[in-house]
Design a protein around this nucleic acid. Structure first.
Lengths: 220, 220
DNA sequence: GTCTATATGCCGATAGAC
DNA sequence: GTCTATCGGCATATAGAC
């Protein structure tokens, strides 16, 4: 990672204080997430960042350039979170552990402190076609990451070979992203939601006759 | 249902030919679905309907009134489709049949000839807050219909009582709606997708040891 | 029921001073 | 790097003729 030298900051922190370009991006991500793409004007972003609309053009060429960067960072962040979560697991982790960890990481990316990933999920369908098209490669790469994860689960053994892993992925990702529309940090935690989704994805709603009274009961 | 008398049509059909208000709604639903809420101007709707923007105000009070009606009809139509599909089933239909039929009906509502349901799914998150809020009761009623269906599946027996039916529903509906973003009528049919989703929801990805070589093998 | 003409306002973007 | 001022365009909505 290259670090942009700050002219008058004596602390070369790993997390540079948000000023200038970074402040614009953070503000834009938050407003896009809250109000959508068309509902967020450059005047809104500038006002929330403590400047005037014309000043934004010193940092970016256009509104599309801003939203494109926000979208790109959104995928980058959630992808890094999922990668880091999987890296902490042992190489022989079972399917249940793999899915629960990856799903939890994805949910954390959307409901965490930063707004880039949630903004991406929310406004991707609203941006102009050419902006959306520019983001397709990054999104495809992230989807391929999940496809690889499901394939790894299948290699790990135990998966029903009649199931269509592609369809499973196409169902899973919107199911995760949909939490943005209903999860408000209520009674159930994000971790519990991730666990339930992983459980549902692997075992389904039906009761398994052979697992009537397993040796280690799941505590909840 | 009240039938609006058409002035110069000799056929009082159950499906009145789209003219005037109905034509405006059909056109608006199609454009909203294709271009989103903010991406569809009243000029666009009027031009596609063969009139001028000012003429729209003879049929509706505002753009919000148009989009509100489109959203309402969208829920009404998909709800009627699901209800009709369930009404065709025997009272003792098993969970697999219930879910497959309901999911198929919901998918047909989104990918069928009419654009209201797909427009609803697409633009619901884009409309002004007060328009969205007015649609919440209709959406809630539809969600309750699915909650009742899952409860019926549980009463039918065989469902794991450890599973959270509310979470299952909150995962299922976005998984269905997400097909709008990837299904293009390719190799797999909508019916096959519905079947696979029902199968996944009930059985999960894991292989069931007790069902290794069942009496009737699923043909595919 | 549809039209022309227009009111009114916000949008993204630019010019140029400091 | 931020500002004031403004341009040109498109948005919703209205007035009033036909």
């Amino acid at each position: 990672m290259t670090r942009t030298p700050s002219t008058r900051s004596h602390k070369a922190a790993a997390t540079p204080e948000p000023g200038g370009r970074q402040l614009v991006l953070d503000t834009a991500a938050r407003l896009f997430r809250e109000r959508g793409y068309a509902g967020t004007s450059l005047r809104d972003i500038a006002a929330a960042a403590g400047m005037k609309a014309a000043s934004l053009y010193h940092h970016f060429d256009s509104k599309d350039a801003i939203v494109g960067e926000v979208l790109r960072i959104g995928v980058e962040q959630v992808s890094a979170l999922v990668e880091a979560a999987l890296a902490e697991l042992p190489p022989d982790a079972d399917a249940q552990t793999l899915l629960r960890s990856a799903i939890h990481a994805h949910l954390q990316g959307m409901h965490g402190l930063q707004d880039y990933t949630s903004a991406n999920v929310r406004i991707f369908g609203q941006v102009p076609a050419h902006v959306r098209q520019a983001q397709v490669p990054a999104r495809d790469a992230y989807e391929r990451r999940w496809a690889a994860l499901l394939t790894r689960c299948a290699r790990q053994g135990g998966l029903d070979r009649q199931r269509d892993l592609r369809l499973a992925r196409l169902f899973l990702i919107p199911a995760m992203n949909g939490t943005l529309d209903w999860f408000q940090g209520g009674a159930v935690s994000l971790k519990a939601i991730a666990e339930e989704l992983a459980e549902l994805l692997l075992h389904g709603l039906l009761l398994h006759p052979e697992a009537g009274t397993p040796t280690k009961e799941k505590q909840r």
